[in-house]
Design a protein around this nucleic acid. Structure first.
Lengths: 202, 202, 202, 202
DNA sequence: AATGAATGAGTCTTCATTCAT
DNA sequence: CATGAATGAAGACTCATTCAT
């Protein structure tokens, strides 16, 4: 008990930073704001993080991890036996996450493309994790004879691309909530193109 | 009626600003950089523009106009009689534009969501312009009995979403050029889901 | 006349910096102090100099140049025919310079050893310039048969070393003015060891 | 009775501080650096020393004491009967000390003039101690009829001035080791000027 | 139209020091 | 004795903007 951990302050800083980045972007928030927001002194922030960049990176890592975790959790709950059910669960989780994080997704969209190096590597990891799972399910569906024999990555990109662009547009440009019906229509359209003879489903 | 009176300085500033924004983002470039880049003095810049914001806005407007114009040009050349041909021409123009402007698209993705007010309105205009045309073609295809009777916006979002996400990922995250074959596969997948019985096309 | 030069501000900054460095050393003065001292705004200082280091370097260069110039001026006035007269004139100029610059020599003594690179090169230049002239005179004296045939550098180091250490000690440690009699005794001692048979001189 | 009670931490701090001061000067090292260097925590340092100043003072006192002790030790070993032998032993010890402490002498040269109050008093003490001994030997040599009847302080300043300036220049500006031959030439020149008729010695 | 010196608020960051454990 | 989290004043430096020329 010499006084090592104390994750309280570090988390408080990350929480405050997450909000600030969401609202103003990396360049748009100052350490002073962060100090105020976290209830700590400026110096304390530099006690826990090396840099403004370090803070930023930490927030993004946490954010992406949460996104990834959330999606996978929701997926795990779904009955994985039916690929169609699975894909719908995935989309639902994705949308829910987006809806809840509303402001944070703004930051992710905005900031992801602004950072290089480490940040993009993390993005690639998430993509591989999430995209890989979706691809696996699609391959399974193909094997089961329910889906057409398309290259899985093409299907993945089509699905995620549509969802992602829809969400980004809705939340960032239109600044309005995600519409479940619109999302449903999108996945229906996707599944129709993916499936063999049957109709989109149930 | 495209060129006004060739105000050299103003264009020089916009050109330099376009590059700077593409590389560093709005907050990441300074007027001093811009002065250096345009070969003019700082004061001169404030003769032509009111604000840093004003410069930014002008660059974005020009950028979006070019994007829009480019796409429409390419479309106009295509034989508009066949919706499928039309859609393929559209996608080709979209990709070419993305490929050529490589760095600028980075800025558009990044900056669009960073600005409010005027900027987003412009984005909405572009979306309506471009998306509207695509929707019209799809409606036409439906009327001709070649496409399934899906809500046009759903198809538009599916197409543009897939293309957009693919391009953004490729250029921003992977930092590699757009792969024509991958793009072809995406549009094939889309068209399969859209068309009635026929195969994707010739 | 577009507004290029304006050496006024630059000089004002250097003057203020010279005083501040003399009094508090490089690390001991702040840009704010310098702004106050020069009657300009902080930003203006960075308009004329790149760095705090840059300011420092400029002050030192100016300082050393003045020292070098002063010594050579005084020497030029002396009757260069008699090496002994010449050496005495040199010492007088050196002491006068030290006396006048009192506080600045503190800085030179203190800071010279703190800087590397560029600074030391300048110091070497001054040494070669000044030391070289003294060495030449001593060689001349040897050629004339008035001085012993000692290696000129040894004599130069003995003379300058004694003067320099005396001055530094007096001004820095004792914080009292240079004593002309003490200095005379030093040069007499030096000349006695240097000259052939004759006594120290008239 | 030289070592007290071996307070490990205190010595570790002083050792680390000595190195840091030698390398970066007083203003150039931080308590954090010192903590790292000594392997202790920041708080611990403040258990052993009141201030950063206090640390600095302690290092300097220890440094100067060592310098003084070293010189006197070496002198004590020499046969004090012959003033010339004595003076050569003194110079040898002085140079050896300088050579061994290389980096620390940088700090002494740099820092001595930066501090007032206590520090300069210590410097004066060292000067009186060391300089006093040299003066005594010279007086003895005069009394013995071997040296000219010059004011002892003049001789002391000439000797120490030459040695000191040579060493400082060599170590600080040229950053190269002391050359024994050059030093020999300097003391020969000095002794020639000091002695009566005889040649320099040997 | 064009210039660039001048401004000062604001930014990130460092640092000696304190204190509860 | 020892620790390291916390502090906030202070430092170097940047930047959009103005204005006399």
């Amino acid at each position: 008990m010499t006084g090592q951990t104390t994750p309280d302050s570090k988390d408080a800083i990350l929480d405050a930073a997450q909000d600030l980045i969401a609202q103003h972007g990396y360049a748009g928030f100052s350490i002073r704001d962060l100090a105020r927001g976290s209830g700590l002194a400026k110096g304390t922030i530099y006690h826990h993080f090396q840099d403004k960049r370090d803070i930023y990176r930490s927030v993004m890592v946490r954010d992406l991890s949460q996104l990834s975790a959330r999606v996978q959790e929701a997926i795990a709950d779904a009955d994985a036996d039916d690929p169609v059910v699975w894909l719908r669960a995935f989309v639902a989780a994705f949308l829910q996450q987006a809806e809840e994080r509303r402001s944070h997704i703004r930051a992710l969209v905005r900031e992801l493309s602004a950072m290089e190096d480490g940040m993009l590597q993390i993005a690639r990891q998430v993509r591989e994790q999430v995209g890989g799972q979706v691809a696996a399910v699609i391959e399974e569906g193909i094997a089961l004879g329910r889906f057409r024999a398309v290259p899985p990555q093409v299907a993945v990109m089509s699905l995620i691309g549509a969802m992602n662009t829809y969400v980004a547009w809705q939340l960032v440009v239109e600044d309005s909530p995600v519409d479940a019906q619109a999302a449903d229509a999108l996945i229906d359209f996707f599944l129709y193109g993916l499936m063999k003879e049957e109709n989109s489903d149930g």
